[in-house]
Amino acid sequence: MSPADVADIELVDVTKRYGDHLVVDQISLNVPKGEFVSILGPSGCGKTTTLNMVAGFHSPSSGRIRIRGRDQAGVPPEKRNIGLVFQNYALFPHMTVAENVAFGLKMKGTSKSETEIGVRRALKSVHLEGYEARYPKELSGGQQQRTALARAIAPQPSVLLLDEPLSNLDLKLRESMRVELKEIQQQLGMTFVYVTHDQEEAMAMSDRVVVMSGGVVAQAGPPVDIYQNPASSFVADFIGKSNLLPVERAEFVDGDSRLILRNGLSLIGHKAPGMDLDQIRLCCIRPENVQLAVPGEASANRLSGRIDKMVNLGAHVDLWIEVSPDVVLKALVAVRRLQGLEVGSQVDVRIEPSAIQPLSN
């Protein structure tokens, strides 16, 4: 195997226990050089513990962790050639921006001239030129976050680990920093492993998302694949909004699957590869795929219902449409499509078969 083929990070059957409590259960993961990977999941799923094991703050109970092909057993954090960015930034308040950024370089024994070059390079990459003499208290939240990022990348680590670094920022700043972080990562060509519980962050920035639940990987893949083809009801519910409908039975109809729901409702959906009809227990439909039907428009899946609730989101409206006494569909509809509809209005909706994802659990 050539050096170019070696993954920047490799986890092989990594498990972490604290006494009888199993936190991470036999996780295996390969992160190629230059990839932006997000580890996503709810609190307590094991994502931060996984990151801490890669960083060297905790040792796995079993399994192997390799960085650039080198086994990390017994290697302390400062010897792993990784950068770290935390939720609270951990900037030194008595140091200027330049001194904060220079800290890691000095710890490596870098010469004064090389340290100055490294600081300038790092600050330029995060768009903080001219802020060298300021102290953390003189910076905005976004500037503090970029300073912490510059400090982490100044020593030119092979991998950067980020633990919910945007969670302390307000919504608009978080959204702008998502774009900046991705641009910085692409500019540097550096491997980023990003831990978050925010699915929008993970979807917006990542080349690949690793969804964790209960200490295991529930699904991993490109964001669009996970969104469009969730592997389970947990993933479907955690990644974006979804209608999860129980399926009483399923049958073949002209190569597609007919899903029989409650109260005699049925939907035509595509056949999931590798899934037998008797395995289907649920189906997932994203709200944006529940569309208001035009009168006279033919559709494989056309349902009549009544608007039960409306929430205005500005350009779009969330609708809750009762299509049977115990089946309510959530729909995301552009305001311009409402045309005078209100709570209590009768509407028809249509759902394309390709938008109906059968699930086994």
Rank of each mutant, 00 (worst) to 15 (best):
R120G: 01
R121D: 15
R121H: 12
R121P: 05
R121Y: 06
R121S: 13
K124Y: 07
K124G: 15
K124E: 15
K124N: 15
V126W: 02
V126S: 05
H127Q: 15
H127F: 10
H127I: 08
L128T: 07
E129T: 12
E129C: 10
E129G: 08
E129K: 10
E129D: 14
E129F: 08
G130N: 10
G130D: 10
G130M: 12
E132P: 03
E132Y: 08
A133R: 15
A133K: 15
A133Q: 15
A133D: 14
Y135D: 05
Y135R: 14
Y135E: 03
Y135H: 14
P136A: 09
P136L: 14
P136V: 15
K137S: 11
K137M: 09
E138F: 00
L139S: 04
L139M: 02
G141V: 06
G141Q: 03
G141C: 02
G141A: 01
G142Y: 00
G142P: 01
G142Q: 03
Q143C: 02
Q143F: 01
Q144T: 11
Q144C: 03
Q145D: 01
Q145E: 01
R146S: 00
R146G: 00
T147P: 04
T147Q: 11
T147V: 15
A148D: 10
A148E: 08
A148P: 09
A148Y: 12
A148Q: 09
L149K: 10
L149W: 11
L149Q: 06
L149D: 03
A150N: 14
A150P: 13
R151C: 03
R151Y: 08
R151Q: 05
A152H: 01
I153C: 10
I153M: 05
A154R: 05
P155S: 08
P155V: 02
P155E: 00
Q156A: 14
Q156R: 15
Q156L: 13
P157A: 04
P157D: 06
S158Q: 10
V159N: 07
V159W: 01
V159E: 04
L160M: 11
L160I: 12
L160Y: 04
L161F: 13
L162V: 07
L162W: 06
L162Q: 04
D163F: 08
D163S: 02
D163I: 02
